[in-house]
């Protein structure tokens, strides 16, 4: 018996024609959006490199810190209280801010990170702290994910002054027509 509803065969379905190529880069907005999900020091470092390079090239840059990435934006002079025993425990396990990040590889209990920082300093590479300062100075928008703060029981007061708490609607708005990075 034939089904009255025709089910399209996904394999046979015509492939949607690619959107007509616009005038290349000229048509794209002069924007970069970085979703910083990772809280690994090296990855965040790379994120700031891209962000600052783009901002210094006159681009409009948005950095959205979510999940583990939120750690970078925590103030180091206070400890978030959390709102129940689980968030308290979790916040204790992820205590610290910018300076407490670990390397994603070869961290070796802090030895690898110590060496990496020393090597970078010897070569005059800006530290994470300086890069965040530069980013703010260049007008990079620093957004903290609202849902992540809710889950973790972090309040606005627990975050650095340069941070604005925003939701995904803002990220999507900023990301539309921009070059996106997910780190």
């Amino acid at each position: 018996m034939d089904s009255p509803v025709s089910v399209p065969n996904p394999v046979a379905a015509p492939v949607a024609a690619p959107a007509p190529a616009t005038d290349g880069a000229a048509a794209a907005a002069n924007k970069v959006t970085l979703i910083v999900f990772s809280g690994d020091m090296d990855k965040v470092w790379a994120a700031f490199n891209i962000a600052n390079g783009a901002a210094a090239s006159g681009m409009d840059v948005t950095m959205f810190f979510t999940f583990w990435g939120l750690k970078i934006l925590k103030r180091e002079d206070r400890h978030p209280k959390g709102d129940n025993w689980m968030t308290k425990m979790f916040l204790f396990m992820t205590r610290g801010g910018l300076h407490s990040l670990k390397l994603s590889n070869l961290h070796r209990g802090g030895m690898g990170k110590w060496m990496m920082e020393k090597m970078a300093k010897a070569k005059n590479v800006a530290s994470l702290e300086e890069m965040l300062k530069d980013a703010v100075d260049l007008g990079v928008k620093i957004y903290g994910c609202e849902v992540s703060t809710r889950i973790l029981g972090i309040t606005r007061e627990d975050l650095l002054d340069c941070v604005e708490i925003r939701g995904i609607a803002t990220v999507i708005k900023e990301a539309t027509g921009s070059t996106p990075f997910f780190i």
């Binding site: 090239s57 006159g58 005059n124």
Partner: peptide, 14 residues
């Protein structure tokens, strides 16, 4: 002098 990417860009922009 002695600055590595992207610091010179940042300084030039400023």
């Amino acid at each position: 002098k002695g600055l590595l990417c992207p610091k010179p860009m940042v300084e030039m922009f400023k």
